[in-house]
Amino acid sequence: MKVIALIIAALAPAIALLSYFYLRNEYESNILLQVLRTFIIGALLVFPIMVLQYALEAEGVLRSEWLHAFLGAAGLEEFFKWFLLFFTIYKFVSFHSRYEGIVYGASISLGFASAENVIYLMATGIDYAIGRALLSVSSHALFGVVMGYYIGCAQIASTKVKKVIWMIFSLIVPLVLHGLYDLILLTVHKNVIVIIVPFMFFLWWFALSRSKKANEKMA
């Protein structure tokens, strides 16, 4: 029973956030099965990334907090999420709107966050569930929303140049945001709450503003 309670506590925040972003889609499109598949892909992505992160640590590549934040964490995680979204969704699924990109981005990120959360809580205990829901799971969702917004813009863009520019944004912007998030947690040892809370408010504002814009009809 204790293990079941822990798994529920680990998965509940991601399911709630994914439901929220899925239901905000104002266009008539039934993409639930594809969203669930993307969620599973994100969850499975945890294991190869953990192996790569361990290898980088063991080889002494991540010698500074900056490298750890922008390469070991944000670089690997955001690149592989972006890579899989590109080759499993972008190239094979026609979007009805930019917002569908947001749903897929949130889905793969929350799949990743769910699996990561289960592993973390099994190692540390359920006492950390609320903190991880508010910070780790939420931040992954927001990085995914930002990535998905730009991917949605890329697919609907009218020229190849615009498509390339939007795809570059879809990788770089969430990677930078993720790197800054991890850098704050790695380098600020006193009163970290004073910095991370405003940063989370900024992430929510930025992601929700992209979400609102994505639901607007394009001229």
Rank of each mutant, 00 (worst) to 15 (best):
M1K: 15
I4T: 11
I8Y: 07
A10E: 00
L11K: 05
A12W: 05
A12F: 09
P13Q: 11
A14N: 01
L17M: 13
S19K: 10
Y20G: 05
Y20M: 12
Y20D: 03
F21R: 03
Y22W: 09
L23Q: 13
L23A: 13
R24F: 01
E26W: 00
V35F: 03
V35S: 06
L36F: 10
I40K: 04
A43G: 13
L45G: 09
P48A: 01
M50F: 14
V51L: 14
Q53G: 14
Y54K: 15
A55I: 12
A58K: 14
A58M: 08
G60A: 03
L62M: 13
S64Y: 06
E65I: 09
E65L: 12
L67T: 06
A69L: 12
A69G: 02
E78D: 06
F79Q: 00
F80V: 13
K81Q: 14
W82H: 10
L84S: 08
L85G: 01
L85M: 11
F86H: 13
F86C: 01
T88P: 04
T88V: 09
I89K: 00
Y90K: 02
F92N: 14
V93G: 04
S94K: 15
H96F: 04
Y99E: 00
V103F: 04
V103H: 07
G105W: 01
I108S: 05
S109Y: 07
L110M: 08
A113Q: 13
E116G: 13
V118A: 05
V118D: 00
I119L: 10
Y120T: 08
M122Q: 12
T124D: 01
G125P: 07
G125C: 10
D127M: 05
D127Y: 07
A129V: 05
G131K: 10
R132C: 07
L134P: 00
A141C: 15
L142C: 02
G148N: 03
Y150C: 02
G152V: 05
Q155E: 12
I156W: 01
I156D: 00
A157Y: 11
A157D: 03
T159F: 01
K162S: 13
K162H: 06
V164D: 00
V164E: 02
F169W: 05
L171M: 03
L171W: 09
L175W: 15
G179I: 14
Y181T: 03
I184S: 10
I184F: 12
I184N: 08
I184Y: 09
L186Y: 13
L186V: 09
V188E: 10
V192L: 08
P198G: 11
P198C: 13
F199V: 14
L203H: 06
W205Q: 02
S209C: 06
S209L: 09
R210A: 11
S211I: 00
